[in-house]
Each structure stands twice: as C-alpha cells, then as structure tokens.
Design a protein around this nucleic acid. Structure first.
Lengths: 161, 161
DNA sequence: TATGACCTTCGAGTGCACTCCAAGCAAGCG
DNA sequence: CGCTTGCTTGGAGTGCACTCGAAGGTCATA
C-alpha cells in the first residue's frame, strides 16, 4: 500500500548500527525512476544487509522478488514500501513470525481484510502500551538524573541507586 | 519439576511474560514487614523466574544477595527496588551488559555519580527517540486500520482517539 | 522419619533474529 | 585474458537473554 512520509529516523537508526556516524540524516534518496533496484541498492536504502534481505525472502516475509535475466534480484518501489512497513512493525517489537503471518494474509487476497485488521489492531494496542511503559520509565530516569545533577551541584539528597 | 501445587505464581509469571497487558495494575502488594524475601516470593512479585534472578546475580547485575543460615537467598526491599529499576531499563531495550555496567558504577561508590548521570541521560535520549518512532508507527497503523475498516463497512466513519 | 515442596550449584540448551561462509556464476575493465 | 567486484545458493554460526536440567541439601508438616 502507500508509502509514508515516514522519516529519516529509520535509516538513521540502522546507520547507527553499522557506522558510528549519527549526525546528518544519511537518507539515501530513493533512486526513483526505473523500479528495478539491486539488492545492494536496497541494502543502502533500508539499512538492512543483503543477507537479511535474502533471509526475509526465504522465510516468506517478502514475496518472491523479481529477477534479472541473470537471476539477480530486482526490487520494485512496491517492495521498498513493504520493507518500510516491515521496518516500522519491527520497531514495535512484533516478532518476525507475526509479520510473516501478515504477509501471508496479504498474499491470500481481499478475503483476509478482516483478519489483517484484527492483527493490526492488536499491534496498535501493543504500541500504545509500550509508549505508556516508556513514559513511565522516562519519569524514573528523570528522577534519577535530577538526583545526580543535584549531587553534582552540591546539594545533598537522599541516596538512590 | 513436579511443581503443580504452586499454581498462582506460575500462572502469574506466564501471564506477565506473554501479554504485556497494561490495564489493571497486577501489582502484588509488596509483602512489607521483614525485608527478607525468598527467591520464589521475589519471582512472584517481579514476574521474573527464579532462574533469571540467580542469573542476574551471577552476571553482576545484582549485588551478592544476603543468605539465610542455610545458604538460601534472602532479598531485601532494597533489592526489590533495584529489580524495579532493572525492569524499567529492560523495557527501554537497554542491553543487559549496560545495566551491569551501571550496577558496577553503583558498587564503586559516589565517585561515579557523573558517569552514572551520563549513562542515564544517554538512555533518556534513547527512550525519547523510541517514543517518537512508536508514535510514527502508530500513525501508519491507524492509516491501515482505517483502510481495512472502510473496506469492511463499505465506506464509513473515521477513527477517533 | 519421611514425604514433598523448595532451595542450592554449575553447566548446558533454547529461540530469536540475524550474520556469515563457501563455492560458484556473471559482468566490467585494462 | 585475468582480475575484481558483486551477485547467487544452502547451510552453518553468532550473540543475546534467558531457560532448563541434574544432583543434591534443607525444612515444615504428617
């Protein structure tokens, strides 16, 4: 389905994993035009490794990717959109098996709309819950950071770990 | 491994591990009073297994826990507080190794305040970033859910909340 | 005094999500 | 032509965070 206006933060996170550079959004402009990207182009664009892209295909997380006359993978913009969604779902902590399930439903056609909606709604609830947890954690972190900051500036406070 | 009799705490542990349900606080009231909890009490309270609690101690994520005269672990309220923090940090995706590092700093005493503060601030930034990512993902999910919902009702209401 | 729940240790096993390897084919370049 | 680079495959290896097993000790209750 549609792409997103989604952000550089995905590419950025991936980049952080491989290089240590974090400053400028290393957003590879999607090489628009011909809709037939090699695996290394897609790797550069998504931040995933070529190994991982092949693995995604093997486990059924992606449809069989189109091949060139010599058997090399040629990814389409549609594939890139799908990878974008997969990246987002991955951020939510959704297990790969569940994403594979969703991919299967998509392959099975329109009759699976209802089940897809349910799966997405369950995911949505998870995301909401996780955001709440993180906010909670943030409050704890802030309290501790305050403690250490105050200790630094000389004020006494009670001992925390 | 014939532990069927201890039903409630096992069921509880399973539940905590599988659903990340956040609605009703399933908070075991902390058994206040004597400050000397057995490992299974702590397991029931935290949702971790006894195995995991021993493992945390082995890897240095917890101080050496006090023992009874027969060598059994006796956890204090202070240990419970620490486990609470560990649980929160775990939710942020912080690697166990980093938590061990923090635990070491705590053991090393007041001179490590500054480093602890830095570690916590880095974590805080991570948490903020993750919340932003999740919000972004939520927007994508909502758009897709809308699509499926409209497909079902043949064009209908838009989602609120 | 014996049963059975619960505890101890160390070390090995599990599941997930990659991550890498080896062998081999194909294309572009000097 | 040989060299380099990059792609293909199936299968094996890695790192993390647990998770479990085996062998045995302890303790309250019947």
């Amino acid at each position: 389905m549609q792409t997103t206006a989604s952000g550089p933060e995905q590419a950025e996170e991936k980049a952080t994993r491989t290089d240590i550079c974090a400053a400028p959004p290393p957003r590879h402009p999607r090489p628009d035009g011909q809709d037939r990207y090699t695996i290394s182009e897609v790797a550069a664009f998504t931040g995933l490794t070529a190994h991982t892209l092949r693995w995604y295909e093997r486990i059924g997380l992606m449809d069989h990717i189109d091949r060139s006359h010599t058997g090399q993978r040629r990814y389409t913009n549609r594939d890139l959109d799908w990878l974008d969604l997969v990246g987002k779902l991955r951020l939510t902590g959704m297990p790969v098996a569940d994403m594979v399930r969703y991919a299967q439903l998509v392959r099975e056609g329109d009759s699976t709309y209802e089940e897809r909606r349910e799966l997405l709604e369950a995911t949505r609830r998870d995301v909401l819950a996780r955001i709440a947890e993180l906010r909670d954690t943030l409050a704890v972190l802030d309290r501790k950071i305050d403690f250490y900051t105050e200790a630094r500036t000389g004020r006494a406070a009670k001992r925390t770990r």
